[in-house]
Design a protein around this nucleic acid. Structure first.
Lengths: 234, 234
DNA sequence: TAGATTGTTAATCGATTAACAATC
DNA sequence: TAGATTGTTAATCGATTAACAATC
């Protein structure tokens, strides 16, 4: 694997730092690369990768250059090598263990979302307070009573917590998680969690997504009425 | 409701234009405001709203000023009025009809996600190609055979399509939707859709979310090993 | 009026887009 | 070698942060 020259972790030296936007595009590159590999491509240019991932070719080169130094001028990037580096960066090779709070529909969907396995995510247990749900399996995952959560987090040393509870339970669950040692929370409940500084929270706010779409449709209708052009977006 | 002065739609004059980041923060403000209202607050300052929504007070004022002109220097914003304006902007008062392709776990979770109703989203039908799933109800929504999709989209004039199919079916479903008249697609399948310019696509890429978290945890562990400080984020 | 807080203007920061010299 | 394509530097754009004069 050709990481960028000089950006490897020599003892106590620096760690590659990737910007948030770049990081979020990595899964798209990964997908496009896998497809390319499946089609038999060994080498790919930034423009072709851009076309396949729907991202600007300038952007592609800029992004890749922030963590990859293996591109060959005149030729392009080695598909397989690039895939490996991205997988390393995304932690797809490490096993990312997580616990999931909330065994309702959303929780169940997350627990059995097929895209996650390939990204190294392993949900080791689910929690719910509803006795109806406790002791059942969802997919491969056993649902436990929420009172067992702190103990299990500590015993297994799990660092990632996923919250898929109703809104009014989310903050309390987050507090419990953090107290037990969770360092990163993926929150699907529509609540702005308040946690201590050193806990990373990713708010997966479906309402925001919906807001964007709804606003777009409303605006489109409005601007059409005013006989103006419509805007677009990929 | 006090929209910003001069930004209303006078015949053919301009439409309020809100930046994407601002738009995505509106649901957070909305939530914080609802909570404030429930607690009996009639008026709220930008700093208090910031505290409650987890957003910088500078940001709050900047955001609000782009669409709201009703703030009173020395006092703050009228909670109820602000809520109403945001609801209007997010189309929470209009009914947003949508059709949903894919009646698997993810599709089912979306169809019955409680947060959506309040945002005016109404899923009028679901589609699947699995005969096992067709003709059943998921929540309130009837699942139909995917062959009936184009006709139904046209008959009801639905403009929003939600894709929750497996990855390999997503592009074909999107094409069908667009041909039938869908103007905005909310895509939960891990595929970069290719659609015509005037169709709005929101890619709800759960893999991106996971990438952010996994990278953060990996990096945190690595930087701890090197005895350096850890970074954080809200 | 005096104190508080807005709305707006200016400064900073970071990401995207573009262009091009280096190089396979 | 000539042609293609990278990696990087420069230019542009837009968002966030800060500061402050206007005003309730």
């Amino acid at each position: 694997m050709s990481f960028q020259k000089g950006s490897r972790d020599y003892g106590d030296t620096k760690v590659i730092s990737i910007s948030r936007p770049t990081l979020q595009r990595l899964p798209m590159y990964h997908r496009a690369l896998e497809r390319s590999l499946a089609e038999g491509l060994k080498v790919i240019s930034s423009s072709e990768l851009g076309r396949r991932s729907g991202i600007d070719e300038y952007q592609v080169r800029k992004d890749l250059s922030s963590f990859y130094g293996g591109g060959k001028p005149g030729l392009g990037y080695d598909v397989l090598d690039l895939i490996e580096v991205i997988e390393e960066l995304l932690g797809m090779n490490n096993l990312n263990e997580a616990i999931l709070a909330g065994a309702g529909r959303l929780g169940s969907a997350i627990a059995s979302y097929p895209g996650f396995e390939r990204f190294g995510l392993k949900i080791v247990a689910m929690f719910d307070k509803d006795p109806e749900k406790v002791s059942r399996h969802i997919g491969q995952v056993l649902v436990l009573d929420v009172s067992k959560m702190p103990n299990l987090i500590q015993r297994l040393g799990v660092k990632m917590g996923i919250i898929a509870t109703p809104a009014d339970a989310a903050q309390e669950v987050a507090d419990t998680m953090v107290r037990a040692g969770i360092e990163a929370i993926w929150n699907f409940a529509p609540v702005n969690l308040r946690v201590s500084e050193d806990v990373f929270v990713r708010q997966e706010d479906l309402a925001s997504g919906l807001a964007t779409l709804a606003h777009h449709l409303t605006n489109k209708a409005r601007s059409r009425k005013c006989s103006t052009a419509s805007s677009s977006e990929a």
